[in-house]
Design a protein around this nucleic acid. Sequence first.
DNA 1: TCAAACCATCACACAAGTGTGAAGGTCTAC
DNA 2: GTAGACCTTCACACTTGTGTGATGGTTTGA
Lengths: 124, 124
Amino acid sequence: MRIGELSERTETPRRLLRYYEEQGLIVSNRCANGYRDYDEATVDRVVQIRGLLDAGLPTRIIKQILPCLDKPRAIHFPDATPEMIATLEHERDRMTRRITCLARNRDAISEYLEAVVNGPGAGR
Amino acid sequence: MRIGELSERTETPRRLLRYYEEQGLIVSNRCANGYRDYDEATVDRVVQIRGLLDAGLPTRIIKQILPCLDKPRAIHFPDATPEMIATLEHERDRMTRRITCLARNRDAISEYLEAVVNGPGAGR
DNA sequence: TCAAACCATCACACAAGTGTGAAGGTCTAC
DNA sequence: GTAGACCTTCACACTTGTGTGATGGTTTGA
């Protein structure tokens, strides 16, 4: 599919799709006329990238973790250098910390909202 | 305490503490000589702010949700305008989405790492 | 009293993600 | 063949969170 369709289906500006490609997060084939051509799987990948970006990961890190998420895992074993493994472990831990922080704060918000809808009287 | 101590205890550059104050995320009293004076609770607050920033929330949003997290909840009921409640619900949902995304990707990383340490042979 | 270690404000700069528009090529349909 | 809707690259600019340094006041200890 071309960039316009990918843009619509992922609700992502074309500008950013080109940027993600520039950063090495997605790839595209080129048609004879120079147009980018994406395959179906790119849709999910873009959604995933956007989610991770929104969760505070920079493209540099996203680029490193994306290959681990592909299905035929065995293919990627050769790239598994010790440094890479260390990076992944570090990022995994950092994500866990982010999750903990988000969950705690979200729960506090929920609690607050509950208290509010129950009326000020119920809070004491 | 003064900014130097707060900086050390929160591992946060002074520059950023002043920035957070400028954005209305923390407050300080001023000593006679103009030095900032923080109270004990600011330590936790700064840590919380940094966690949320790292999880992708902008200061503008953090500023809005921080008041809900204070202990004596009843004090803040007057500010609970309908728009404020809508904002909070929206941010709560967004945080949930972030958590889901982070958890899924973190689990995939964990899975990958497990496969790697078990050796390529175990992956098939 | 003088140095060192704090503190203050101000300002310029940078990276990352994103917005926007210019200038131009390609394809489709009337 | 021309208009409109696509696509291309390039470039300039904005925002946000940070880094860094200049310039100067205050406090503390030798």
